[in-house]
């Protein structure tokens, strides 16, 4: 079983147009456990890959709203109940005066969520990845474009997948060890 020792295949492309068309072909061939890597977000490549839109905005909405409501509650609780004190003739629950801090904390909770959810949803930080063993892959953050298909994919067949990648115009196809 030579295939069991292989994590997947890595194919290199030279420019955004090549990886765009190649991704369409890999998508249409029915692969699911595969990925395209690029030094910058190639416009429309997510659609060419058939990638689903991110759920991140929902996380931000949920936690942002929670943080926002908690802050308003906190301001009302401290100023109106825990430490009631009339300042400048304002009522204990003085909503207009609460707005700036309320607003800032809504922004802060949403931004912290966006920041952490971004990495968590992408499974980062990920110190090791099989592709990092490849010398060619070092240029993924420079000017080269890559497609990797995992051996775990139901449709994966070493020879056939290799042929498919070669057919999409890959300039280099490598086997990746786990």
């Amino acid at each position: 079983m030579s295939e069991s020792k292989i994590w997947g295949l890595l194919a290199q492309y030279e420019n955004p147009a090549e990886i765009y068309h190649a991704s369409e072909k890999v998508r249409d061939a029915g692969y699911e456990k595969w990925d395209a890597c690029a030094p910058f977000p190639v416009h429309g490549l997510d659609k060419a890959m058939g990638a689903k839109p991110s759920k991140l905005p929902w996380a931000v909405l949920l936690i942002g709203l929670t943080g926002s409501s908690l802050m308003l509650f906190f301001e009302s609780y401290t100023s109106g109940y825990a430490y009631p004190f009339i300042v400048g003739g304002k009522p204990l629950f003085s909503l207009p005066a609460f707005v700036p801090v309320w607003y800032e904390m809504s922004v802060l909770s949403s931004c912290l969520t966006a920041f952490f959810a971004n990495w968590i949803m992408s499974g980062l930080p990920e110190p090791y990845h099989p592709a990092f063993a490849s010398k060619a892959f070092e240029r993924v953050t420079d000017d080269k474009f890559f497609i990797m298909i995992e051996a775990e994919d139901a449709k994966f067949d070493l020879e056939k997948t290799k042929a498919l990648l070669a057919d999409t115009g890959a300039t280099l196809v490598e086997e990746l060890k786990p």
């Binding site: 190639v42 931004c111 971004n118 990845h129």
Partner: peptide, 28 residues
């Protein structure tokens, strides 16, 4: 770098997060 490898699936989330951070920073 947190193990960033330019994965397009990461880029999709990343761009969304960046957009949201921008949208919240703008009123700041």
């Amino acid at each position: 770098a947190l193990g960033w490898r330019g994965s397009m699936r990461h880029w999709v989330t990343y761009e969304k997060a960046y957009q949201i951070l921008a949208a919240f920073s703008a009123p700041l």
